[in-house]
Protein backbone atom coordinates (compact mmCIF):
# COMPACT_ATOMS: atom_id res chain seq x y z
CA UNK A 1 0.00 0.00 0.00
CA UNK A 2 2.73 2.41 1.02
CA UNK A 3 4.67 1.55 -2.12
CA UNK A 4 1.74 2.34 -4.40
CA UNK A 5 1.24 5.61 -2.58
CA UNK A 6 4.85 6.51 -3.23
CA UNK A 7 4.38 6.00 -6.96
CA UNK A 8 1.31 8.19 -6.92
CA UNK A 9 3.33 11.04 -5.56
CA UNK A 10 5.99 10.64 -8.22
CA UNK A 11 3.34 10.69 -10.93
CA UNK A 12 1.59 13.62 -9.34
CA UNK A 13 4.87 15.50 -9.25
CA UNK A 14 5.53 14.77 -12.94
CA UNK A 15 2.08 15.93 -13.92
CA UNK A 16 2.66 19.18 -12.19
CA UNK A 17 6.12 19.51 -13.61
CA UNK A 18 5.34 21.97 -16.39
CA UNK A 19 5.80 24.93 -14.19
CA UNK A 20 8.89 24.04 -12.27
CA UNK A 21 8.43 26.54 -9.49
CA UNK A 22 4.82 25.65 -8.97
CA UNK A 23 5.61 21.96 -8.77
CA UNK A 24 8.27 22.49 -6.15
CA UNK A 25 5.98 24.52 -3.99
CA UNK A 26 3.34 21.86 -4.40
CA UNK A 27 5.30 18.69 -3.76
CA UNK A 28 5.96 18.75 -0.03
CA UNK A 29 2.27 19.16 0.75
CA UNK A 30 1.40 16.25 -1.52
CA UNK A 31 3.91 14.05 0.29
CA UNK A 32 2.46 14.89 3.68
CA UNK A 33 -1.03 14.31 2.33
CA UNK A 34 -0.03 10.81 1.25
CA UNK A 35 1.43 10.08 4.69
CA UNK A 36 -1.80 11.23 6.32
CA UNK A 37 -3.85 9.24 3.81
CA UNK A 38 -1.95 6.04 4.59
CA UNK A 39 -2.44 6.47 8.32
CA UNK A 40 -6.14 7.28 7.93
CA UNK A 41 -6.64 4.32 5.58
CA UNK A 42 -4.95 2.03 8.09
CA UNK A 43 -7.18 3.42 10.85
CA UNK A 44 -10.28 2.73 8.78
CA UNK A 45 -9.06 -0.79 8.05
CA UNK A 46 -8.18 -1.42 11.68
CA UNK A 47 -10.92 -4.05 12.32
CA UNK A 48 -9.60 -6.07 9.38
CA UNK A 49 -6.07 -5.82 10.78
CA UNK A 50 -7.26 -7.03 14.19
CA UNK A 51 -9.07 -9.96 12.56
CA UNK A 52 -5.93 -10.88 10.66
CA UNK A 53 -3.88 -10.94 13.86
CA UNK A 54 -6.28 -13.52 15.30
CA UNK A 55 -4.65 -16.04 12.99
CA UNK A 56 -1.64 -17.53 14.77
CA UNK A 57 0.58 -17.61 11.68
CA UNK A 58 -0.13 -13.97 10.83
CA UNK A 59 0.41 -12.89 14.44
CA UNK A 60 3.70 -14.80 14.53
CA UNK A 61 4.81 -13.12 11.30
CA UNK A 62 3.79 -9.66 12.49
CA UNK A 63 5.56 -10.01 15.83
CA UNK A 64 8.83 -11.14 14.25
CA UNK A 65 8.58 -8.46 11.56
CA UNK A 66 8.15 -5.55 13.99
CA UNK A 67 10.66 -7.09 16.43
CA UNK A 68 13.45 -7.06 13.86
CA UNK A 69 12.57 -3.51 12.80
CA UNK A 70 12.41 -2.20 16.38
CA UNK A 71 15.55 -3.97 17.60
CA UNK A 72 17.48 -2.63 14.62
CA UNK A 73 16.53 1.01 15.20
CA UNK A 74 19.06 1.91 17.94
CA UNK A 75 21.85 0.28 15.93
CA UNK A 76 20.70 1.94 12.74
CA UNK A 77 20.62 5.32 14.49
CA UNK A 78 24.18 4.75 15.74
CA UNK A 79 25.25 3.80 12.22
CA UNK A 80 23.66 6.81 10.50
CA UNK A 81 25.07 9.17 13.15
CA UNK A 82 28.60 7.93 12.49
CA UNK A 83 27.97 8.01 8.74
CA UNK A 84 26.69 11.60 8.98
CA UNK A 85 29.63 12.62 11.14
CA UNK A 86 32.01 11.23 8.51
CA UNK A 87 30.19 13.24 5.84
CA UNK A 88 30.29 16.44 7.89
CA UNK A 89 33.71 16.31 9.52
CA UNK A 90 36.02 14.13 7.41
CA UNK A 91 37.27 16.25 4.50
CA UNK A 92 37.21 14.63 1.05
CA UNK A 93 40.58 13.14 0.21
CA UNK A 94 41.46 12.53 3.85
CA UNK A 95 40.66 8.82 3.92
CA UNK A 96 42.61 7.88 0.78
CA UNK A 97 45.56 9.83 2.20
CA UNK A 98 45.76 8.07 5.58
CA UNK A 99 44.89 4.54 4.43
CA UNK A 100 47.69 2.35 3.08
CA UNK A 101 47.74 2.23 -0.72
CA UNK A 102 48.43 -1.46 -1.02
CA UNK A 103 45.28 -3.58 -0.52
CA UNK A 104 47.42 -6.31 1.05
CA UNK A 105 48.00 -3.89 3.91
CA UNK A 106 44.77 -1.84 3.91
CA UNK A 107 42.46 -4.86 3.97
CA UNK A 108 43.82 -6.55 7.13
CA UNK A 109 43.98 -3.15 8.85
CA UNK A 110 40.30 -2.58 8.00
CA UNK A 111 39.41 -6.06 9.23
CA UNK A 112 40.99 -5.45 12.63
CA UNK A 113 39.52 -1.92 12.79
CA UNK A 114 36.09 -3.55 12.76
CA UNK A 115 36.65 -4.41 16.42
CA UNK A 116 36.21 -0.73 17.29
CA UNK A 117 32.53 -0.45 16.32
CA UNK A 118 30.31 -1.98 19.01
CA UNK A 119 27.18 -2.43 16.93
CA UNK A 120 25.52 -5.00 14.80
CA UNK A 121 25.24 -5.38 11.07
CA UNK A 122 22.44 -2.87 10.44
CA UNK A 123 24.68 0.00 11.53
CA UNK A 124 27.79 -0.95 9.61
CA UNK A 125 26.17 -0.83 6.14
CA UNK A 126 25.53 2.95 6.07
CA UNK A 127 28.99 3.55 7.56
CA UNK A 128 30.71 1.46 4.88
CA UNK A 129 28.65 3.20 2.20
CA UNK A 130 29.77 6.58 3.51
CA UNK A 131 33.41 5.47 3.65
CA UNK A 132 33.21 4.48 -0.02
CA UNK A 133 31.58 7.80 -1.00
CA UNK A 134 34.38 9.61 0.84
CA UNK A 135 36.96 7.90 -1.32
CA UNK A 136 38.15 5.09 0.94
CA UNK A 137 39.42 2.10 -1.08
CA UNK A 138 36.42 -0.11 -1.74
CA UNK A 139 38.19 -3.29 -0.65
CA UNK A 140 39.03 -1.80 2.75
CA UNK A 141 35.52 -0.39 3.30
CA UNK A 142 33.91 -3.71 2.39
CA UNK A 143 36.25 -5.61 4.71
CA UNK A 144 35.26 -3.26 7.52
CA UNK A 145 31.60 -3.79 6.63
CA UNK A 146 32.00 -7.54 7.13
CA UNK A 147 34.27 -7.62 10.15
CA UNK A 148 32.69 -4.91 12.37
CA UNK A 149 29.47 -6.76 13.24
CA UNK A 150 31.31 -10.06 13.67
CA UNK A 151 34.28 -9.31 15.89
CA UNK A 152 33.39 -6.30 18.04
CA UNK A 153 33.76 -6.76 21.82
CA UNK A 154 30.00 -6.90 22.51
CA UNK A 155 29.57 -9.81 20.11
CA UNK A 156 32.59 -11.69 21.48
CA UNK A 157 31.43 -11.26 25.08
CA UNK A 158 27.95 -12.46 24.10
CA UNK A 159 29.55 -15.51 22.49
CA UNK A 160 31.54 -16.24 25.64
CA UNK A 161 28.35 -15.99 27.72
CA UNK A 162 26.44 -18.27 25.35
CA UNK A 163 29.20 -20.89 25.37
CA UNK A 164 30.32 -20.96 29.00
CA UNK A 165 33.61 -22.69 29.64
CA UNK A 166 34.41 -22.90 25.94
CA UNK A 167 36.80 -20.06 25.11
CA UNK A 168 37.88 -21.91 21.98
CA UNK A 169 34.50 -21.07 20.42
CA UNK A 170 35.14 -17.34 20.95
CA UNK A 171 38.63 -17.64 19.50
CA UNK A 172 37.36 -19.65 16.54
CA UNK A 173 34.64 -17.07 15.84
CA UNK A 174 37.14 -14.20 15.97
CA UNK A 175 39.67 -15.90 13.71
CA UNK A 176 37.19 -17.28 11.19
CA UNK A 177 35.42 -13.90 10.89
CA UNK A 178 38.71 -12.00 10.43
CA UNK A 179 39.82 -14.54 7.84
CA UNK A 180 36.53 -14.42 5.93
CA UNK A 181 36.46 -10.59 5.87
CA UNK A 182 40.09 -10.37 4.79
CA UNK A 183 39.66 -12.92 2.00
CA UNK A 184 36.63 -11.07 0.62
CA UNK A 185 38.54 -7.78 0.77
CA UNK A 186 41.55 -9.19 -1.06
CA UNK A 187 39.41 -10.91 -3.69
CA UNK A 188 37.55 -7.64 -4.22
CA UNK A 189 40.80 -5.69 -4.49
CA UNK A 190 42.02 -8.10 -7.17
CA UNK A 191 38.85 -8.80 -9.17
CA UNK A 192 36.21 -6.31 -8.04
CA UNK A 193 35.06 -3.54 -10.34
CA UNK A 194 34.57 -0.14 -8.77
CA UNK A 195 31.84 0.60 -11.31
CA UNK A 196 29.67 -1.77 -9.28
CA UNK A 197 29.84 0.72 -6.42
CA UNK A 198 28.52 3.61 -8.47
CA UNK A 199 25.49 4.01 -6.30
CA UNK A 200 27.54 4.59 -3.15
CA UNK A 201 30.07 6.78 -4.99
CA UNK A 202 27.31 8.93 -6.45
CA UNK A 203 25.78 9.49 -3.05
CA UNK A 204 27.32 12.87 -2.45
CA UNK A 205 26.90 14.98 0.62
CA UNK A 206 24.55 17.89 0.99
CA UNK A 207 26.08 21.31 0.67
CA UNK A 208 25.84 23.99 3.30
CA UNK A 209 26.89 24.35 6.90
CA UNK A 210 28.28 21.44 8.90
CA UNK A 211 25.01 21.14 10.78
CA UNK A 212 22.90 20.97 7.64
CA UNK A 213 25.27 18.38 6.14
CA UNK A 214 24.97 16.36 9.36
CA UNK A 215 21.16 16.50 9.41
CA UNK A 216 20.74 16.04 5.66
CA UNK A 217 22.98 12.98 5.52
CA UNK A 218 21.46 11.40 8.62
CA UNK A 219 17.94 11.99 7.26
CA UNK A 220 18.75 10.52 3.86
CA UNK A 221 20.54 7.47 5.31
CA UNK A 222 17.78 6.81 7.84
CA UNK A 223 15.01 6.61 5.24
CA UNK A 224 17.17 4.76 2.73
CA UNK A 225 18.53 2.15 5.13
CA UNK A 226 15.26 2.01 7.08
CA UNK A 227 13.24 1.22 3.96
CA UNK A 228 15.53 -1.62 2.96
CA UNK A 229 15.58 -2.83 6.55
CA UNK A 230 11.80 -3.20 6.30
CA UNK A 231 12.18 -5.35 3.17
CA UNK A 232 14.74 -7.50 4.96
CA UNK A 233 12.68 -7.82 8.14
CA UNK A 234 9.61 -8.86 6.16
CA UNK A 235 11.63 -11.47 4.26
CA UNK A 236 13.16 -12.91 7.42
CA UNK A 237 9.79 -12.99 9.19
CA UNK A 238 8.23 -14.78 6.23
CA UNK A 239 10.96 -17.40 6.10
CA UNK A 240 10.80 -17.95 9.87
CA UNK A 241 7.04 -18.40 9.65
CA UNK A 242 6.77 -20.70 6.63
CA UNK A 243 9.89 -22.88 6.78
CA UNK A 244 9.06 -25.76 9.14
CA UNK A 245 11.41 -27.00 11.82
CA UNK A 246 11.46 -30.52 10.37
CA UNK A 247 13.55 -29.26 7.44
CA UNK A 248 16.27 -28.38 9.92
CA UNK A 249 16.07 -31.63 11.87
CA UNK A 250 16.36 -33.69 8.71
CA UNK A 251 19.86 -32.35 8.04
CA UNK A 252 21.00 -32.25 11.68
CA UNK A 253 24.25 -33.88 12.65
CA UNK A 254 27.82 -33.27 11.63
CA UNK A 255 29.74 -33.21 8.40
CA UNK A 256 29.90 -30.59 5.71
CA UNK A 257 26.22 -30.86 4.81
CA UNK A 258 25.17 -29.90 8.35
CA UNK A 259 27.63 -26.99 8.23
CA UNK A 260 26.12 -25.81 4.96
CA UNK A 261 22.61 -26.20 6.38
CA UNK A 262 23.31 -23.95 9.38
CA UNK A 263 25.10 -21.44 7.17
CA UNK A 264 21.93 -21.33 5.05
CA UNK A 265 19.79 -20.98 8.18
CA UNK A 266 21.86 -17.98 9.26
CA UNK A 267 21.05 -16.32 5.91
CA UNK A 268 17.33 -17.02 6.28
CA UNK A 269 16.87 -16.13 9.96
CA UNK A 270 18.66 -12.74 9.85
CA UNK A 271 19.37 -12.63 13.58
CA UNK A 272 21.28 -9.70 15.03
CA UNK A 273 24.95 -10.59 15.43
CA UNK A 274 24.80 -9.72 19.12
CA UNK A 275 22.20 -12.43 19.68
CA UNK A 276 23.11 -15.20 17.26
CA UNK A 277 25.51 -16.94 19.66
CA UNK A 278 22.60 -17.77 21.97
CA UNK A 279 20.67 -19.36 19.14
CA UNK A 280 23.80 -21.21 18.01
CA UNK A 281 24.30 -22.52 21.54
CA UNK A 282 20.79 -23.96 21.50
CA UNK A 283 21.20 -25.78 18.18
CA UNK A 284 22.72 -28.77 19.95
CA UNK A 285 21.62 -31.29 17.36
CA UNK A 286 24.38 -29.84 15.17
CA UNK A 287 28.15 -30.16 15.44
CA UNK A 288 30.20 -27.32 16.91
CA UNK A 289 31.71 -26.70 13.45
CA UNK A 290 28.27 -26.22 11.93
CA UNK A 291 27.33 -23.81 14.72
CA UNK A 292 30.54 -21.85 14.13
CA UNK A 293 29.53 -21.49 10.47
CA UNK A 294 26.16 -20.15 11.68
CA UNK A 295 27.93 -17.45 13.71
CA UNK A 296 30.44 -16.54 10.99
CA UNK A 297 27.94 -16.34 8.12
CA UNK A 298 25.11 -14.59 10.03
CA UNK A 299 26.78 -11.20 10.62
CA UNK A 300 28.09 -11.12 7.02
CA UNK A 301 25.29 -12.43 4.80
CA UNK A 302 21.60 -12.60 5.60
CA UNK A 303 18.38 -11.55 3.89
CA UNK A 304 18.18 -8.31 5.88
CA UNK A 305 21.81 -7.40 5.12
CA UNK A 306 21.47 -8.22 1.42
CA UNK A 307 18.49 -5.88 1.29
CA UNK A 308 20.46 -3.11 3.02
CA UNK A 309 23.40 -3.65 0.65
CA UNK A 310 21.11 -3.43 -2.38
CA UNK A 311 19.95 -0.09 -1.02
CA UNK A 312 23.39 1.30 -0.30
CA UNK A 313 25.53 -0.16 -3.07
CA UNK A 314 23.04 -1.33 -5.70
CA UNK A 315 21.60 -4.66 -6.85
CA UNK A 316 24.37 -5.58 -9.27
CA UNK A 317 26.88 -5.23 -6.47
CA UNK A 318 24.89 -7.31 -3.98
CA UNK A 319 24.37 -10.03 -6.58
CA UNK A 320 28.14 -10.61 -6.67
CA UNK A 321 29.11 -9.63 -3.16
CA UNK A 322 26.67 -11.84 -1.21
CA UNK A 323 27.68 -15.17 -2.84
CA UNK A 324 31.37 -14.27 -2.59
CA UNK A 325 30.97 -13.49 1.11
CA UNK A 326 28.94 -16.64 1.73
CA UNK A 327 31.56 -18.90 0.16
CA UNK A 328 34.39 -17.13 1.96
CA UNK A 329 32.59 -17.30 5.34
CA UNK A 330 31.70 -20.99 4.98
CA UNK A 331 35.25 -21.84 3.90
CA UNK A 332 36.83 -19.88 6.74
CA UNK A 333 34.50 -21.42 9.31
CA UNK A 334 35.25 -24.94 8.05
CA UNK A 335 38.98 -24.32 8.07
CA UNK A 336 39.12 -22.75 11.54
CA UNK A 337 36.73 -25.36 12.97
CA UNK A 338 38.93 -28.14 11.62
CA UNK A 339 41.93 -26.51 13.31
CA UNK A 340 40.47 -25.35 16.64
CA UNK A 341 37.26 -27.19 17.49
Amino acid sequence: MARAAGKDVALGGADQGDLDGRSRAWRPDAGIAVVVLVIVAAAVLRPALVDLLDRPAVAHWATIFVSIAIAAMPFLVLGISISAAIAAFVPPGFLPRILPDRPALAVPVAAVAGAALPGCECGSVPIAGRLVSRGAPAAAALTFLLSAPAINPVVLVATAVAFPGMPEVVAARLLASLLAATVVGLVWARFGRDSLLDRARRSHSHGGTRLSVLAGTAQHDLLQAGGFLIVGAATAATLQTVVPRSVLDSVAGSGFFALLALAGLAVLMAICSEADAFVAASLTQFSLSARLAFMVVGPMVDVKLISLQVGTFGGRFALRFAPLTFVSAVGSAALVAWWLL
Binding site: M1, A2, R3, A5, G6, V35, V38, I39, A42, A43, R46, L49, V50, L53, P56, A57, A59, H60, A62, T63, I64, F65, V66, A69, L222, L223, Q224, G226, G227, F228, I230, V231, A233, G311
Partner: peptide
Amino acid sequence: GVGWLLLAPIAALLLVAPPTLGSY
Protein backbone atom coordinates in the same frame (compact mmCIF):
# COMPACT_ATOMS: atom_id res chain seq x y z
CA GLY B 1 12.03 6.45 -2.25
CA VAL B 2 12.15 3.15 -0.44
CA GLY B 3 11.65 5.04 2.83
CA TRP B 4 7.91 4.94 2.09
CA LEU B 5 7.99 1.32 3.18
CA LEU B 6 8.60 2.47 6.74
CA LEU B 7 4.96 3.53 6.82
CA ALA B 8 3.89 -0.15 6.93
CA PRO B 9 5.23 -0.98 10.41
CA ILE B 10 4.42 2.57 11.60
CA ALA B 11 0.76 2.25 10.62
CA ALA B 12 0.58 -1.26 12.06
CA LEU B 13 2.17 -0.31 15.39
CA LEU B 14 0.15 2.89 15.80
CA LEU B 15 -3.11 0.97 15.45
CA VAL B 16 -2.61 -2.62 16.53
CA ALA B 17 0.35 -3.96 18.45
CA PRO B 18 1.14 -7.53 17.39
CA PRO B 19 0.92 -9.94 20.33
CA THR B 20 3.77 -11.67 22.14
CA LEU B 21 5.02 -14.86 20.54
CA GLY B 22 2.81 -17.80 21.42
CA SER B 23 2.35 -21.50 20.87
CA TYR B 24 2.51 -21.23 17.07
